[in-house]
Design a binder for these strands. Structure first.
Lengths: 249, 249
DNA sequence: GTTGATTTGAACAAAAATAATCAAAAATAA
DNA sequence: TTATTTTTGATTATTTTTGTTCAAATCAAC
């Protein structure tokens, strides 16, 4: 039995069973585990199977895995940013929090503070429901995709409040074009929040710096403080500071 | 059984059941709790599940807020009432739903209808987030105890809308004194909803009939239809009908 | 708030799987 | 036939995964 014959049988078995183990194949093909491993390495290199510890699996079963959820990306950075942002908050503050995933990471760090949070984000409400934080929910149409509230009523709602600090996320930001968004709704809401807050904090991981989205809606000056992660390029950070943004990390 | 295979099974289980616990998975996959935890950490990092204390949940419905123990009472009656109430709803309707637990039981029966629901109840929002229902969330102060939104802004929000039907719950109702509530907030909100709806449906299990709470806030005539359970006394039902309420069950 | 029970994550040890090495066997070429 | 290359399997060292224990964190109930 040569490699070509084994290859066929291995592929066939993997396809039938979905997942196989090395000793299993060794037994089936009457050969050693070492040989099976070498075969699997080759097949995996060719992309015909997915190599696992102890065996192999069908490729298509694995393909679902990668990035199903945007909010999963850069979790570590987001947490670091959120933690830094939480340091800015003082007891008694009234905060705006928008529906960005980075902003949502603030929740664990503010659970025990005596503050008021005004938000349109359902996950934020959910996470702070059993906390010492006083909550105010912005009303309006529910965007199921973003798990957040948008629309005319939301804008009017915000206009009735004032906050000490607004924590906002953003789809894109650049020195040349300022803030940009993927949709009208997000842009409108961000503007409304910024307008009604004494101090605007933009929470934004460094990968988003100097990226533009399709809708430019505000100049850099809308932002008072830009909180990002330590991966930020030093020269770039200086450039933002020159532009009048208080960049910290 | 390697990580990849466990991963598949975990995702499948979480998706089927909505929520799982660590020991449950450990038993199911014949492995230790520690291994399950490590798996869950990875899956959560990839954003495929939401990690909770003791287990994991589907990412979509992290909003799930277990209703207080109150909702456990008379579940059977409440479901029967809700099912009867759902029959009144037609495609295209715009509904108000208040934050009562009986009203919340409507959700399973309206998931697939093409209607718009305006509500101040967080559990209702949560249950309908993945449904064909268009949602409008009433904004204002969040009452953590009742998992609902109240206050001035809520009242103003409601005043801006009009619904075909309002489904409301109540703390007390009697022929002699009409509707009564345990707090100003509930009373105010109920009134606001009733005012803006063409038809007011009161969902109320029979045990609440002829009970008075401390705040009387509206006459019986506020209610167009009273939906209750089959346990209701026949003579009492007739008395309500005499008083002009369309009582059904 | 404080207590008490559970859950968690880190550290370590054991087990399993892998890759590297090397010698023997098989296939190929000279 | 003999020399050379390739493949294979055994041995060993390394890596990966897993399970246990325990202190710290978290939750829930009071």
């Amino acid at each position: 039995m040569n490699f070509q014959q084994r290859k066929q049988l291995i592929l066939q078995t993997v396809d039938e069973r979905g997942a196989v183990e090395v000793p299993e194949l060794a037994d089936l093909l009457q050969t050693s585990a070492m040989t099976i491993r070498r075969d699997l390495v080759q097949l995996a290199a060719a992309g015909l199977i997915y190599r696992t510890h102890g065996g192999a699996m069908r490729v298509r079963d694995i393909m679902v895995v990668p990035f199903a959820n945007k909010s999963a990306m850069n979790v570590v950075h987001k947490e670091a940013i959120a933690q830094r942002a939480a340091q800015e908050i003082q007891d008694g503050d009234v905060l705006f929090m928008d529906c960005g995933s980075t902003v949502a990471h603030l929740c664990p760090f503010i659970r025990n503070k005596r503050i008021t949070v005004i938000t349109n984000s359902l996950p934020v409400i959910s996470e702070l429901l059993n906390s010492s934080v006083t909550l105010n929910l912005i009303g309006g149409e529910v965007d199921k995709e973003r798990q957040a509230v948008h629309g005319t009523m939301a804008g009017e709602h915000i206009a009735r409040y004032h906050a000490d600090r607004a924590f906002i996320g953003i789809d894109g930001i650049s020195l040349a074009n300022g803030l940009s968004a993927n949709g009208e709704q997000e842009a409108q809401l961000t503007l409304a929040l910024a307008r009604q807050a004494s101090r605007v904090y933009l929470l934004c991981d460094s990968s988003k710096l100097e990226t533009d989205k399709y809708l430019f809606f505000a100049p850099l000056s809308l932002v008072d403080v830009l909180i990002t992660d330590a991966q930020v390029n030093v020269d770039l950070a200086d450039a933002y500071r020159q532009a009048g943004v208080d960049l910290i990390y």
